[in-house]
Design a protein around this nucleic acid. Structure first.
Lengths: 143, 143
DNA sequence: CAGGATCCCCGAAGATACTG
DNA sequence: CAGTATCTTCGGGGATCCTG
């Protein structure tokens, strides 16, 4: 990597100690799988809300701030159900009642989401500062 | 598979014991922040590749399978740089040489990505099975 | 109440061409 | 080599209407 150039030295983190050992590039270590699932706009919200208990469709929709449409909630929850992360229970009553809850696998994902949240909260100040610094460097003020 | 849950510290799958304590719904516990950063199509790949060391633009592009365009790589890497996750070093040579590497914060994110990868790899069979089961239930074979 | 069916919009992402 | 600029496409996602 460093071809004898005037390297600006490292940041302190050892680059020769790969945390991620990607043996199967074709599958991106499987990261893509999870990200495709959590990467969409709403899945994570649904998981977060469902993490605290069973919810019905409307209630779930109500709790998700930002206002998810019925369509997107349906699509999102269906995909999660298909992947075995959410369990959908239909009570053949009138009016119909459908309850959603995380499966065990879904709950295990919850820990990851929490890890992400923790990381985000911990580094938000640093990120904000980095952005400010970057934007300042770019100096957009000049017309 | 009912009691198979490994309760690390205080986390549990009980509905009355929220793993995710969302005190600030406005910020979605900050999860959205990370996801917006990792949720896009390429960021995670860049992080993964840079996790193993310093890379130049072209080499980085070459390693990312699926074929990222120069444009997207530029945009992705720029955002990561702005957020302080990636450090960009420009050597004023001819031809120009630019090296990218993760910052310490970027490396810390790497651990999260690895956790996601591990989770994905561990649960992939279950997910695949769940999908097969779901699709079978839906029975699309009937015309 | 839960959700299927439709229409439409906008932004993410690709392709291509040009430059320092 | 490492971008920037421009045009275009594609599909995620919103709004709305309708039904069991």
């Amino acid at each position: 990597m460093s071809a004898g150039h005037t390297a600006v030295t490292t940041v302190g983190a050892a680059a020769d100690e790969p945390v991620i050992s990607c043996e199967t590039p074709q599958d991106e270590c499987g990261v893509r799988d999870v990200l495709d699932r959590l990467g969409d706009k709403w899945s994570v919200y649904v998981v977060v809300e469902l993490a605290s208990g069973v919810l019905r469709f409307k209630e779930l929709q109500r709790r998700i701030h930002g206002g998810i449409s019925q369509r997107m909630l349906t699509l999102t929850v269906r995909r999660l159900e298909r992947d075995g992360l959410v369990k959908r229970t239909v009570y053949p009553t009138i009016p119909p009642q459908v309850e959603y809850e995380l499966t065990e696998m879904g709950h295990s994902l919850t820990h990851l989401v929490k890890a992400l949240a923790d990381w985000s909260i911990a580094h938000r100040p640093a990120i904000t500062a980095a952005r400010a610094s970057y934007d300042e460097t770019q100096d957009v003020s000049a017309p």
